[in-house]
Structures are given as structure tokens and as C-alpha cells.
Design a protein around this nucleic acid. Structure first.
Lengths: 214, 214
DNA sequence: ACCTGAACACCGTTCAAGT
DNA sequence: ACCTGAACACCGTTCAAGT
């Protein structure tokens, strides 16, 4: 209800404000900013709890599909959706291993789908990590970008509409030839394109003779 | 020379300290913390300049290879190496579009390699973005993790050596079967595995009939 | 058992004043 | 043309004190 403070200027010029602070949290809850220390040892403990609640919300109502690929896409889209919903939290959260119940469950389902696809335990373990690292990395970048203030975001987006288009053709012939087809940085479709590409390659590994591993 | 301040406790419990601050910068340069405002409008301007210098360092001595795949891997490895060298800077930098000379040059070389591989302007533009988003996302996540303090990093790493291993086999059979083969979060080989998988899929697109695009 | 509030050691940024 | 230094509005965290 009561706006916590005017916040005319944020701590970083490119930060959109409203990040998670104990003072804002206390104001919102009507208690002192330090009251949170009665419940969590420090800010990191709070964040780990939030990782788990985020994954709980993401996985609510999930049931695995017979199609392993659909199952994995479903899980990763769910996790991404909830991070998009809380981008300022996602920045703090997505590089961490939550190591709590709802993360365990999501991991079990992902690896289960890869095993059902016909992957060996070795390949399932490795590709679980590669796929998940792609998704987490993408989400952090996306959330970081969306946490910037509007003007900074627009400046970065405009780079692909203005600066990259203004480059001299003779010096940058390849950019010139493709510029109409380079998606803007934060085009939401990129996530799915990359995930599909990775899953295509994994599917290829299943059909092809197993490659030499390192 | 002179350590700027003891810094026994950092602003966030999980931040490793030594991030980029105007006060630390001023102390290091022997000037007042606000002197930087004589040269940059705000912190964001400083960061954009640093993006360009990072890419300049990354691309120093680069020459494209005849092999398009080698060329792209070389560029992406160079960019990653320089971000690994300055992880606390990488966190601030890797989600941004630098839109300056050295970024233009790197983009030109990446798209050029994809065109030489036989991709259409459409596909080259799209896959440039997908590959780059993978690399940037991976780097942000890696840099964010390496910017955590040592104890927090160890806690996350230990999750895969302790918590995930302690899970009951009957409830988590797929994790149990693969646990010996799941790489730790920050295994440096994951980057290359993911990039190779994406490039495998791109190569597949070149050989196969072009797919319907969306 | 839980909360308060002053204090500490930090932030980016502004601005009047210096040279 | 460039720098200083006080000030402002913020941070996470500690700790003695309250109920």
C-alpha cells in the first residue's frame, strides 16, 4: 500500500529499481528492516528459500508426457516462465543450485525423460547439464536485461535497429546482408530456437553411433 | 598498492567483494571517488566503454580460419576467456550490446563464417543470434557464480557431491543412475559441449533440406 | 521468541566550491 | 578543464535493548 520511498534515483544508473532489499521488505510487511534476521541467517538463506518456492510454483500441475522431448521443453518453459514473472529475483536466483525438494523433482524428471529417450546414464548426465546450463544462462541474461531501466534497454535494442544498420556495406558486408534477419537481443523466440537446436543434436546422438567422449 | 579499505563484510553476504565501485576506483587512481564523472556521464557509460575494451583484448591477433566452425569456436572462446579473466566485470557487461567498433568486428566475423558455411542470410542472422545468446548467457552465469564468495560457491558445488548423492534411490531412480556422470555446475568443459552441440545442429541444417522457419 | 532502532561500513550521484 | 568534499538517499548487517 504505502510506497516504501520515492526512490527518484536508484543505486546504479542502469538498475530499474525495486530490487530485493531488506528495507523495502520490512516496509512492505510493516516491520523493521532487520526483522528478517529472526527468520534467515542472511540474505543468501532468503534467496535459497526463494529458489525453492520459485521452482515449486513452476512445477505446479506438471505431469510428464510420453514424448521425452515434449517433457523437457515443458519443464524448461515452466522454469523460464516463472523467472520471467520475477526478473529481479531471477537475477539473484538462476545461477544457484537450490538443492531442495522442488529442484530435486525437476532434475529427476529431466533426466528421466532423457533416459526414456534412449540415452545411457553417461549421456543423460552430461546432456542434463548442458541443456540446463543453456536454460539457466539464457534466463539470467534475459532477467538481467529486463532488470535494466527502460532507457538502457531501449538503447541496447536500438543498436540493432540503428547503429548496426548504419555500418558501411563495404567494411561489414556480412552484417549488411543479414541485418534484416538478425533478431533483436531480447526477442523471446530465441530461447525456443536454441533449445530446439540442442534437442535436435541430442536426438541425433541417439540415432547415430555414440561418439567418443572426453 | 594501498588496500582501499579492509572490507571485512561485503554488501551482500554472497558477494565476493571487490566489485567495481567509484570509491575503490578513485582510491586506486589516487583521486576523489567522484572524479570519474568528469569523464563519463554515469556508471553505465563507463561499462559500455569497458565492453569495447574487453572485446578489443579478446579479438587481438584474431584471424579467420578457412574452417567456419573453427572460426566461430575461436571467437567465442576468446570472448569467454576475457570474461573469465574479469568475472566481476563480466557480470556487468555480458548482457549488454556494446555497439562499438570491436563488437561490430566480432559480429561481422561470426556472420561471415556462417555465410561461408553455406547458410542463407536468413539462417545466418538467426543462428548468429542463437549461438551468441548461448555464449553470453553461459558467460553471465559462469561469471555470476565465480563472483560469489568461496563458501557460497562451495555450498553449491557440494550439492552435487553430497545432497544429490544422498537422495533415496526409489524416489529418484534417474538421478541415482546418472549421478556419477552429472558434471558439477561449474565444470569448464560444459561450455564447449554445448557449443559443439549447437554447431552440430547448425551443420545438420546446412546438409539437410532447409526447414520451415517461423 | 520475536522485534526495534541506532549504528557501522558501505553504495551512486549531485553540486557548490576550489585550482 | 578538471578535481574536491560535503551531502543525499540509499545498501546489508550487528547488537544492545525492549516486549
Amino acid at each position: 500500500m504505502a510506497s516504501p520511498s520515492s526512490c527518484t534515483r536508484s543505486r546504479y544508473s542502469n538498475s530499474g529499481g525495486d530490487s530485493l532489499t531488506f528495507r523495502a521488505l520490512g516496509a512492505r510487511l510493516g516491520v523493521d528492516a532487520t526483522a528478517v534476521y529472526r527468520h534467515f541467517a542472511d540474505k543468501d538463506e532468503l534467496i535459497l528459500e526463494l529458489v525453492d518456492r520459485l521452482l515449486k510454483e513452476a512445477m505446479a500441475g506438471f505431469t510428464p508426457d510420453d514424448n521425452w522431448r515434449k517433457t523437457n521443453v515443458d519443464i524448461y518453459e515452466r522454469v523460464r516462465a516463472v523467472h520471467l514473472k520475477f526478473p529481479r529475483l531471477a537475477v539473484l536466483v538462476a545461477s544457484r543450485t537450490g538443492r531442495r525438494a522442488h529442484e530435486f523433482s525437476a532434475v529427476e524428471h529431466i533426466i528421466g525423460a532423457l533416459r526414456r529417450a534412449g540415452l545411457s546414464p553417461e549421456s543423460a548426465g552430461r546432456y542434463y547439464r548442458v541443456l540446463t546450463e543453456y536454460v539457466l544462462g539464457y534466463m539470467i541474461e534475459e532477467a538481467t536485461f529486463r532488470s535494466l531501466d527502460a532507457a538502457t534497454q531501449d538503447g541496447d535494442r536500438r543498436a540493432w535497429l540503428v547503429e548496426y544498420r548504419a555500418l558501411p556495406d563495404d567494411e561489414f558486408p556480412n552484417i549488411a546482408s543479414s541485418i534484416d534477419h538478425i533478431p533483436i537481443d531480447d526477442d523471446p523466440r530465441i530461447f525456443g530456437w536454441g533449445l530446439d537446436l540442442l534437442l535436435d543434436a541430442v536426438e541425433q546422438q541417439i540415432q547415430a553411433p555414440p561418439p567418443v567422449s572426453t
